[in-house]
Structure formats: C-alpha cells, structure tokens
Design a protein around this nucleic acid. Structure first.
Lengths: 173, 173
DNA sequence: TCTGTTGGCCAACGACTGTTGACATCAGAG
DNA sequence: CTCTGATGTCAACAGTCGTTGGCCAACAGA
C-alpha cells in the first residue's frame, strides 16, 4: 500500500527528505504511479496526515484519574503499531512544514480541546488545554523524536507516575 | 556575517530546506565563499549549532522558587533576540536531523543535567531531569514551532504561573 | 617589481528531485 | 473480434542542489 509506505517514510525522515521515488520503491511500484494516485507530493503528504487520537470520553473518567489516563493513553498510542504512526508523521513534519503545522492545530482544535472540555467544563479546559498539550507533546518530542536518554530510559509506568502529578497540578492551577 | 544568516535560515526552515545559496544571498556574498569558510553544509550547520543555555547557578535558588525560575528563564531565552536563536535552530533541526539530535543530547548532558544536579542533588536530579526537559521542550515546541493558539495566547506570566506548579509536582514526586 | 596571500565572483559539474507523457499490457464490455 | 479504461513501465524534462575550480583584484612584504 502506497499510503503505508508514505507514512513510514514521512514519519522516519520528515517531509523534505522523503522522496516520491523512495516511497514508490518501498511500495514496489513506479514513481509515476504515486503521482497518478495522489496528484503530487503535497497531496500524498496530506493523505498521510489523517490522524485520529482515539481519545476516550474523558467526561466518563473520574476527575482524579484524568491525568494518569491521559498520559497512559498517549504513551500507548505512540508506543503502538509503528505502521500506524500518523501521529509521529504529523509531529515530525509539523516542525518544518507549515501544512503539517496547520493540520496539527486542527487536530488540537477538533480532538484535544473538545475532549478536555467534556472533562473539565469549557472554562477550565480553555485555560488548561494549551498547557496540557505542551506537556504531552513535550513527552513525544523528547522520547520519540529526540530520544533523550533520560526520557527513553523511563518505563511507561515511570512516565505515568512522573507526569500525572504534573498534569494534575496544571489542571488544578 | 555568514553565521548569523545561516542561523536565521536554519532556525526558520530547518536543515534540509535551507540552501547554501540562500544563506550566501542573505549574507550578500557568493555561495562558494560559504564553502571556503566552512567546508561544506554539514560543517556550517555544526557551527550554527553552538548553544549556551546560560543557565544560572540553580544551587543558589531557593528550592521553592526553582520551578518558576526555570520556566521564566527559558521563556525569556526564547522570546529574546531572534538573531541569537541557536536554541531554536537546534530544536527545529533536531527533529529531522540526527547530527542536531546528537547535539541536543550533548547540550542536555552538559548543561541541563549538571544544573539540576546542583539544585536537587544527583539522585533526585537523575530522576527528574528527563521529565523537566520534557515539559520545557514541550513548551518551546508548542509555542514557538507549532504555534498552537492555545499556547501562544498565554503571556509569559501565564506560562510561569501555569507551568511552575507542574514542574514543582514532578520535582517533588 | 615580483610574489604570495586573501577575499571575491563566475560558470560549470554531476547528482537528485518532482513531474510528465508516450507506450505497453490486459481484462472485460459491446 | 474491437474498443475502452484501468494498471503499469520507461525515459526524459526542467529545475535545484552541493560542490569545484578557474580567474580576477587588492595588497603586503621582499
């Protein structure tokens, strides 16, 4: 599948360094086939950016468990099937590609913000959403993209135990 | 100055999208001059990556104020002179460039970890350093690179007020 | 005056890129 | 059978890139 190959390349190398030729080689087809199906590189990229965070209904989570649930959800999401890593595609690309950054802001507005609003109510969510995203994206950045040893060394349980109190503090503040 | 132009380009576009030709044009010289002075693109990049976080002596900071001092230091550092933004060069590039990621890990090991150790003692620092970096890098990511509206909307004081409790929680945990 | 060094421009190279269009194959519909 | 439309191959285009090397001017020291 072309899109699968494209996602892996985009996730591993970002937008600029993945070439249509490489994607085509991975998918074992001709580069011109990629063009025929997706139009051009930008549209292929757009198609690879479809992201569903699969956030559960946070309104059903007891308030005290919200931070731990959030951290664990994202860690499992990132640690999961690497062929499904549209999320890492998005994060890696959004740093240098404006189209991807746009999509990231859309995902935030359409998925993160509403989910938090369901749990916290609109006012507290508006205040906390940005800071919560900051912490969760920071985790993805330093663990999966930069691979800081001090962060990759931690187990998923360590991460939950270490970050949940921090999230709780910003939610409370 | 070539290096100044290079830093601005690298910070704005990342490694792959900045061309030697563009850097040379910014510096109003010939591309071949860039080669003569820096050897090749990779070495120019390496020269642009010199980063000094200018962390104060955290050992002299009262324990209770440590989180707020950290957040404020980094916000001021990032919000400051954009021509001096080796830090954003590094962050933007490290996401897709292994050389930059290496340098990022070096900066962490040589500057962040020791500074925290001075404030917390080696054991607590070892446990907290990764999570602290996670949160501070997450802030830089979502505010200065992704420009999430929910984060750019906050004032520096808001950021300090919102994130200091979170940092305090991970330092305590 | 000759000579070496420095700083500079210019044109070109080979490699790689996204993209295009011409051509082949082949299954199914008429 | 022919016609059609999808599916795929191949070669080439035009542009950009990093990089090289040759040439020129200024200038300092011998």
């Amino acid at each position: 599948m072309i899109l699968r190959a494209a996602r892996e390349r985009f996730a591993a190398q970002g937008y600029e360094r993945t070439t249509i030729r490489a994607v085509a080689a991975d998918a074992e087809i001709d580069p011109s086939m990629v063009m025929r199906y997706f139009g051009n590189k930008e549209q292929l990229f757009g198609a690879a950016l479809a992201v569903d965070l699969r956030l559960p209904d946070l309104g059903a989570v007891p308030a005290g468990e919200l931070p731990a649930v959030l951290v664990r959800h994202f860690v499992e999401r990132w640690e999961g099937d690497p062929a499904d890593d549209a999320l890492l595609v998005l994060l890696r690309s959004a740093v240098t590609n404006e189209q991807a950054a746009d999509r990231m802001r859309e995902v935030f507005a359409a998925q993160v913000a509403p989910a938090l609003a369901a749990a916290l109510g609109p006012q507290r969510a508006a205040r906390a959403a940005g800071l919560v995203s900051t912490q969760l994206l920071g985790l993805a950045l330093s663990r999966y993209l930069l691979r800081l040893p001090a962060v990759t060394a931690l187990s998923p349980d360590d991460l939950v135990a270490g970050l949940a109190p921090a999230l709780a503090a910003t939610l409370a503040g």
